[in-house]
Amino acid sequence: MTKEELIDYVYFDIAGEYLNQRMEDWSQTQKWYNTVFELSVPVRYTYCIGILNTQVMNGGFEQYYDNYYGIFAEETLKGLKEIGASLTHQLVLTSTEILKKHMSPGVDLFTFITSNEHWDNKEIVDAFNRLSNEYFDLEDKEDLTELLGTYLQNCEIS
């Protein structure tokens, strides 16, 4: 089995099946968030890194946060660090720092993202456009499939 098959047809499928069984209304972001944290760590990292890559490659960091996948950004950072994806980690970390810079005191990242307040801010949108372009340029520098696949080969499927 190739690393890509291991990611797509084992770990990502486990995540998808589990979430689809438990989620009837994906707009219930708190339930979705909690359900993702019921997944085993390797499955959770696969889900978080997979959705990051899909969302950003399709519509940039703006799409990642606009579709609420950014609620998993902090867990995604843990996964990226664990698999050794330092360049991608830095871009995601920068994206969260940009958001945190504009958050009101006492507001957490989850609440800020789900409130959609960030799209009223040109500075955030412009910064996300720059970060997205940097992300697109990573393809030749850091292979997430290779890094995640190597990590998963050393994990027990659960």
Score class of each variant (00 low, 15 high):
residue 11 Y to R: 15
residue 137 D to H: 10
residue 87 L to R: 09
residue 29 T to D: 13
residue 14 I to A: 09
residue 154 N to F: 05
residue 76 T to I: 05
residue 19 L to H: 00
residue 123 E to L: 05
residue 72 F to G: 04
residue 30 Q to T: 05
residue 91 L to C: 03
residue 73 A to L: 05
residue 111 T to K: 06
residue 152 L to Y: 03
residue 31 K to R: 04
residue 87 L to E: 15
residue 149 G to Q: 06
residue 81 K to Q: 15
residue 96 T to N: 14
residue 94 T to M: 10
residue 97 E to H: 13
residue 13 D to W: 04
residue 142 E to V: 11
residue 62 E to V: 14
residue 144 L to H: 03
residue 56 V to P: 02
residue 10 V to D: 08
residue 103 M to S: 11
residue 96 T to K: 14
residue 154 N to M: 11
residue 1 M to H: 08
residue 105 P to Q: 15
residue 93 L to A: 15
residue 16 G to W: 12
residue 53 N to G: 00
residue 28 Q to N: 08
residue 147 L to I: 09
residue 15 A to T: 11
residue 37 F to Y: 09
residue 11 Y to N: 12
residue 47 Y to S: 08
residue 25 D to G: 02
residue 22 R to Y: 01
residue 55 Q to V: 04
residue 157 I to F: 01
residue 131 L to S: 12
residue 64 Y to T: 06
residue 147 L to M: 13
residue 153 Q to T: 03
residue 114 T to K: 07
residue 14 I to E: 09
residue 79 G to W: 00
residue 42 P to M: 03
residue 128 F to M: 05
residue 132 S to Y: 05
residue 131 L to G: 09
residue 154 N to E: 14
residue 105 P to H: 15
residue 148 L to C: 10
residue 38 E to A: 03
residue 9 Y to R: 10
residue 54 T to I: 09
residue 142 E to H: 12
residue 38 E to Q: 05
residue 72 F to I: 09
residue 154 N to W: 09
residue 124 I to T: 11
residue 156 E to A: 06
residue 129 N to Y: 15
residue 40 S to R: 12
residue 153 Q to I: 02
residue 73 A to Q: 02
residue 131 L to K: 12
residue 102 H to T: 07
residue 155 C to N: 06
